[in-house]
Nucleic acid binder design. Structure first.
Lengths: 246, 246
DNA sequence: CACCTGATTTGATCCAGAACAAGGACGCGT
DNA sequence: ACGCGTCCTTGTTCTGGATCAAATCAGGTG
């Protein structure tokens, strides 16, 4: 059922270094996200229980309702998290990008599904191991709690976006949010990468694919953005921010 | 600016007992919520830093954007939490009821406002004290983290409700959710107390007051509920659940 | 009681965005 | 190059819920 490809955790890294030492370039890239999220002091402990894995584009690696056996951290690529209604309606509850955790809720079952938008690199932790680590290292729990409450703040903002704002406001706010997220990962840029499809944006923003498309076209027509494949270029930062502003 | 009435924390309870001993009826009622949320073992520590307060109906005791100096726990009554847009549009992000915490996010500023729907009893904790307690008692942090992730799950469900479901589904789901919450607090009942106004339900569900009113009327016309002042009575549990079901 | 004020319901119209429909545009395999 | 499938855009129509407008109702209060 699971389409993810497990990569045996290298007890000794390809570069010859032991876990806990400075990482080789390849491993550093993979662990960067976790590192950034947790602070380097936890890395050695994490290193003992992490399993590096990948998920190819479009594969589902968390299934809503299934027993939550793993906690994930994204190191590369973009993941969409979503809830499905029985009749097929879908709500994307978030996009996870490098540095983000999935499955933080210490519940028995996953409350959402997750799949890879593009090829994704993941750190997988066994639930049990993760739980032990949390219990042993309160500092770690604290970080996790901060992360969870931040997620909560985001979720509350998204509620406001979906519940009370127009299609144009939603799209503009989404673009700006994506821009800021990429900026934290790879530095500022006027080009906003949008690896997900229109339908994903629609299901995230509580709109239809047609409305998303039309709204982007309108923003482009107004000279605010330029639509390019897999991305948009911001032409008029001020105007875009003005539309998105609460 | 703050309209809440601070009640000096009784070093010796009215009944003559010391803090940490079993509580007198009055105090027990007040502390019940915290107790239920955290487990009785933390009570003694909490007791040293808690300030019992009240907020009269309609008063605001958390202001979005202000420095977060307190953490609250509701012991009595209902609180609405909301975000305001600059043009006055409002999204209610949740209702807090006895046993619920407010201001968990360990952020500098409140991300929402909160006011009392009806007369509310609160336990207020100084941010600094609360923080110290968390640091000293990992078990306590763990409880809090569980609470926060549960909130996150609720928020994600609410996103789905607002983003992808019809007015009738939203109202039905709201009624069932309120029923379950009251059931945990005061036991099961076919009467669902709704102390908040129609406009609060509307702002919670991403609808207008008229749509909420019409939808309730329709449910009543269909013999599913009976509308009574400040509440609704459930007449056809099956049908209501069928509408609310995802 | 008569009056006022705020909440709720009900009615009539409107409109943003959904739904339906039809082309493009692009990539991929043959 | 051609056909095919997927995604995206654009055009048209439709509708659920918003908006505008009045009643109705429920508490106060003098």
């Amino acid at each position: 059922m699971t389409e993810i490809i497990e990569i045996a955790h290298p007890r000794v890294h390809a570069c010859g270094r032991q876990p806990g030492e400075n990482y080789c370039d390849n491993c550093k890239v993979r662990s960067l996200a976790v590192c950034a999220a947790l602070g380097s002091e936890e890395l050695p402990e994490l290193d003992n229980i992490v399993h590096h894995t990948r998920a190819e584009a479009k594969t589902t690696f968390i299934h809503q309702g299934e027993t939550a056996e793993s906690v994930f951290s994204v190191t590369e690529g973009v993941v969409r998290l979503y809830k499905l209604l029985s009749d097929g309606r879908r709500q994307i509850i978030g996009f996870a990008m490098p540095g983000d955790f999935l499955g933080l809720a210490l519940h028995n079952r996953y409350g959402f599904s997750a799949d890879a938008v593009d090829p994704v690199g993941l750190c997988r932790f066994d639930r049990r191991d993760f739980d032990n680590l949390i219990t042993a290292k309160p500092h770690f729990l604290r970080r996790l709690h901060e992360f969870a409450t931040h997620e909560l703040v985001i979720a509350q903002e998204q509620m406001t976006l979906i519940g009370r704002r127009s299609a144009e406001e939603r799209v503009a706010a989404f673009l700006i949010a994506m821009r800021e997220r990429w900026a934290r990962i790879k530095g500022p840029s006027v080009t906003i990468q949008l690896p997900m499809q229109r339908i994903d944006m629609a299901d995230y923003l509580g709109l239809t694919i047609e409305t998303v498309s039309r709204t982007l076209t309108k923003l482009a027509r107004d000279g605010i953005i330029l639509i390019v494949p897999e991305a948009v270029r911001v032409l008029d930062e001020k105007k875009l921010a003005a539309i998105a502003r609460a």
